[in-house]
Design a protein around this nucleic acid. Sequence first.
RNA 1: GGCGCGGUCGCCAAGUGGUAAGGCCGAGGACUGCAAAUCCUCUAUCGUCGGUUCGAUUCCGACCCGCGCCUCCA
Length: 480
Amino acid sequence: MSVELYDTLSRSIQPLAPSSSDTLRFYCCGPTVYGPAHIGNFRTFLIQDTLRRVLEVDGMAVKHVRNITDLDDKTIRRSLEEGKSLIEFTAHWTEKFHADCEALNMLAPSIEPSAVAHIPQQIALVEKLIEKDHAYATDDGSVYFRVGSFEDYGRLSRLKQRELKTQTENSAGEVNDADEYDRESVSDFALWKSRKDGDGDNYWTSPWGEGRPGWHLECSAMVDSAFDGETIDLHGGGIDLCFPHHENEIAQSECAHGHDFCKHWFHSAHLMVEGAKMSKSLGNLYTLDDLREKGFSPMVVRYTLIAGSYRQQLNFTFDGLHASQSALTRFERFAETLLAKTGEASDRFNATYVTAGAPEDFGRLAKAWDALRTNLNTAACLGAIFGVIGSNPAASLEADGARAMLRTFGSLLYALGLKLFTIEAKHVDAPEEIIALAQARWDAKQSKDWVKADEFRDELLAKGWTVNDSKDGFAIEPTE
RNA sequence: GGCGCGGUCGCCAAGUGGUAAGGCCGAGGACUGCAAAUCCUCUAUCGUCGGUUCGAUUCCGACCCGCGCCUCCA
């Protein structure tokens, strides 16, 4: 059985396989680096990363390309506001993005092209489209794609050209005014934007004058560049990009090359936060750092973001985050139980067992592995793993059996991108006074003076500290 | 209006034409001086109404409700 995935274009689940060569060509629309990425962005990137890992464990070679959008209205505006060059500004946020990706245990893409580094390719693509009469320059030096010249336009999102042309206002109720931009049709979109005052130094010379590329064009050019203009096998992105971004990518690339742009489209649903649409004004737009400050480890965030069906909206809540934390702890307990049988230490678990090398037989965890290969059903996979954990399989295993199960469990964790034993403990240093109180309580406890010991505990509690005992000592932490 | 997704236990969430995985929370138990942590056990007939069928949560139809996209938001 190969890996199967829902395809937006055919509206059906299709097996994934490289069309030519033996490597799957996989392109993802990456982040716009004008600030820290939020968890909604990461949900999409994490799902893509998880799919890539599943393919890898399944034995398929994948060329994974994810671009950096460093040239658009937002990056230009923000960099100017901060008085930085575009390069300097976007380099900073690209670096931050990389750090977050690493924390979330995401594999680095095979190639990570940037829009600014592909200006000549973008200009060449526009020239080709003008040559073939699919694009036209306007008096102000902009170039537009002539949507009416591409019969298949709207195929991906199932929007009919006729309806697009007659649509006179957008969802915000703003009028789509064709005249303002000198476009032939309101549905025509910009390939090249002529230089505006607000662009600062961010303009390039082109056959149509100074200006900069349009956003949609960037992806088409980077796909060409990374994959030699060949048809790609799989293209991913958030569902919001389906129209118009991906529709426009298809139009540009197919009109320029005369062959299919992409075979299989992979769209992930959006994230809601506490039941509401994520937005800055609601104050529910979280970054990874926000959650870390609240004490949630990146692995807990990853678990939360991939635990639900990727095609369904995920409602991100702090309840959910806590649930993930508990679930991950149970994974760790399970691993520890098995490790106890093999006599290995838990700190070697990730390096030894969490690898892309798949066992021939997933044994009792076969159901969990099959779930991942069937349209990336992470929820069913996790459920199946817990089903096995609940049956306490370690009880009847000797060292060899435990090792085999650790290997299959580890492969699943690799595919899910989850590392165990990495949860960052909240470590808060207690003041002297608190430590003294806790020590006094411990001493009272040692002399079996329970009344006194409890008094000390109440006192600590009143001061906001909780004390927990273990076999040979105590730990204190701020009460939640 | 167009395109699309969804309504399953308090919360989250799989799934199948033959009588519902799993996680969290909660309850009970074990352990512990008491707690905490951990372990064990327990909790649903699947939005409404029709239809198809021996049998539907799963297929079809209608309806109700929630949500996303519809020109540059992952």
